[in-house]
Nucleic acid binder design. Structure first.
Length: 615
DNA sequence: GCCGTTTTCGGCCCGACTGTTTTCAGTCG
């Protein structure tokens, strides 16, 4: 791999990647993620260099737009290099300058501007900027005045006279930086939604139960259903706001109060292994909708909404939507056009209600959703679940009971295959017995369908872990990658394409094998997978387990654009795992998934017919 | 750097809080 100057997040240590003297240099196509990272790097470097903030913001936007694209930039450029710049310019947020840089990166494997900026700004300074409370101005002055180029440098100098002499650097600021660095060391990454949501629900309930509270909600990335959460945002309307604030800053697990104002409080919270910041906003009831919209974000969605308001001669802020363009209209005694609920604000701006999960700041205002998004109650089947036969904790009957409790019409028993030794995977003989056991249970149970299946390993070369004659015994085959998850993108693509094309495979389970914050997983050419899956009518799974969420949101969107069916399963190993479905549904909604696009919403007959097809 | 149904130049979203300041800059979301 010779992508000079742009960091590859994947497989950089993989044997055979380094070209030798005798080998011609062959370059793998540059991925969207790599392009997005390059632009994000440039934005950060520009910030630290004190560049025009609009130029900085522009690079950030390009990074975001590319990260969330559902098609490959490499395909777009290669299709016709001569017109690539013009076609890139048609994408939102990408102008001539960025388009040319993208083409340069695609064609040469490097981007001059990126390399120049990276040479100018020390990489360690990015980490300094990452410390909460240190912004571009502070990081820049530390760098310029004291040659601080990393967090280590910062901590080495923080107690010196010279550091204290920096502008706006007082006792409290220094103490806050020290604490922020220590806190950061302990919580390096964003919190997975599976850990954040239960905590948020608990706090939300407690806030809602306080005397005088009229309305309470959580907002932010959690309400938007992002896979990881930066901090928890709460919104409360109360006749006794001081008491609510007092409760919040003294809540269980609060380790530091970062702000305690009349309308905003901010704390650091530690619960179990989770350490996260939580913000509380106290808002008037009559402006609850405007505030909820504002604090739900995303930031980019809000910017678009405010721009749209300005175009219509209005002004939007967290107090409401107002006629005219005066600053702080809420202080002038003006009555808002809309404020109490989100629906009214969208309506006043001639938009349908946009569900929080879709507020990503992409095209949702230009092309508002028309179809209803999938909901928890739409799910009528679980097609990926384990029993004690492999590594689950439930018997076949208990699994069926879980499905019945949730009102499902179908449950598939899909234990691990033989290669999953650590998960007590079944060899062919055990699988035959297990299928008999499942059929025996199915015969006793009349109200729901219990299917005999398997989660069969897709081996590194794309072959399956059982022979076809064994697979043919099953009602449903979920094929999943579990091992060799560091193989290069070409091998991963070929491996998954082979499984997708297998006539007995109906579902590809957790296609990339990634684990959030822990394992990157495979990086196949997703567009190729979508096309093949659509062609062979093989469903791609959105694994709802909050550690997986694989496919991720943008993958589900890309798959649907190609007409691919989506399976939404919890991969349950124990009863409570069925509750993970909410994370899958949130992710699916972020992808704009309509119920019809998900096989688990189909009526029993339609689903069973589909499962039998091709065998 | 991007963008255009007031525009190809001159704009570019809005407010709260803290800490360092004597009226506000920086940071955050």
């Amino acid at each position: 791999m010779v992508l000079v100057g742009v960091s590859r997040g994947h497989n950089t240590d993989h044997a055979g990647d380094q070209p030798t003297r005798d080998q011609p240099v062959t370059r793998q196509p540059v991925t969207n993620d790599e392009v997005a990272r390059a632009f994000a790097d440039m934005a950060t470097a520009l910030e630290l260099l004190g560049a025009n903030r609009f130029r900085t913001a522009s690079n950030s936007r390009v990074a975001r737009e590319i990260r969330d694209m559902t098609t490959n930039l490499a395909d777009l450029v290669n299709e016709d290099p001569a017109t690539a710049v013009a076609r890139l310019c048609a994408l939102p947020g990408i102008g001539k300058g960025s388009a040319e840089k993208i083409v340069e990166l695609m064609e040469t494997g490097a981007m001059n501007e990126h390399q120049k900026l990276m040479a100018e700004v020390p990489r360690g300074l990015f980490d300094v900027l990452d410390v909460p409370g240190i912004g571009p101005k502070a990081a820049r002055v530390m760098w310029q005045e004291l040659e601080i180029e990393s967090v280590d440098d910062l901590m080495a100098q923080i107690d010196t006279e010279a550091f204290r002499a920096l502008p706006r650097m007082g006792e409290k600021t220094i103490a806050n930086i020290k604490e922020a660095v220590a806190f950061r060391a302990q919580t390096a990454s964003r919190t997975p939604i599976g850990q954040a949501l239960p905590i948020a629900r608990e706090i939300h309930e407690a806030l809602a139960a306080l005397p005088g509270v009229e309305r309470a909600a959580y907002a932010g990335s959690l309400r938007r259903g992002e896979e990881t959460i930066g901090d928890l945002d709460f919104l409360v309307s109360s006749s006794e706001p001081e008491a609510v604030a007092e409760f919040f800053v003294n809540a269980e697990g609060v380790t530091k109060v970062l702000a305690h104002g009349a309308t905003k409080c901010s704390v650091r919270l530690e619960r179990g292994r989770v350490a996260i910041q939580a913000d509380l906003r106290l808002v008037p009831l009559e402006a609850f909708g405007a505030a909820l919209m504002y604090f739900t974000g995303s930031k980019e969605h809000n910017v678009r909404m405010r721009e749209r308001s300005i175009k219509r001669g209005m002004r939007l802020n967290e107090y409401g939507l107002f006629e005219g363009n005066e600053e702080r209209p809420q202080d002038l005694g003006k009555a808002p056009v809309a404020a109490a609920d989100e629906e009214a604000i969208y309506a006043a701006l001639e938009l349908p209600f946009i569900p929080p999960e879709l507020r990503q700041g992409h095209a949702e205002l230009d092309q508002p959703p028309t179809a209803r998004l999938i909901e928890l109650n739409d799910i009528k089947a679980e097609l990926h679940a384990h029993t004690v036969a492999s590594d689950g904790s439930m018997s076949i009957e208990e699994l069926a009971q879980c499905a019945r409790n949730r009102g499902y019409h179908t449950i598939a028993v899909t234990d691990h295959s033989v290669s999953q030794v650590i998960a007590n995977g079944l060899d062919a003989d055990r699988l035959r017995d297990h299928v008999d056991a499942v059929r025996a249970v199915a015969a006793r149970i009349e109200d729901i369908s219990v299917l005999a299946g398997s989660e069969v390993d897709i081996l590194a070369d794309g072959s399956l872990d059982y022979d076809d004659e064994i697979l043919a015994l099953l009602d449903v085959v979920v094929a999943s990658p579990h091992a060799a998850l560091r193989q290069d993108p070409e091998a991963a693509t070929a491996r998954l394409l082979k499984a997708i094309a297998h006539p007995l495979v109906r579902i590809i389970g957790h296609p990339t094998g990634r684990l959030i914050n822990r394992r990157e997983g495979l990086s196949p050419d997703m567009s190729a997978l979508y096309r093949a899956a659509a062609e062979h009518d093989t469903a791609l799974e959105l694994n709802a387990n909050s550690q997986r969420l694989d496919l991720r949101d943008r993958h589900v969107r890309g798959a649907r654009e190609q007409g691919c069916a989506i399976a939404l399963d919890t991969d349950a190993h124990r009863e409570e795992n069925f509750d993970q479905l909410v994370y899958g549904v949130l992710t699916a909604r972020r992808a704009g998934l309509e119920p019809e696009g998900c096989i688990n919403t189909w009526p029993a007959e339609k689903l069973h017919t589909w499962l039998r097809a091709g065998r």
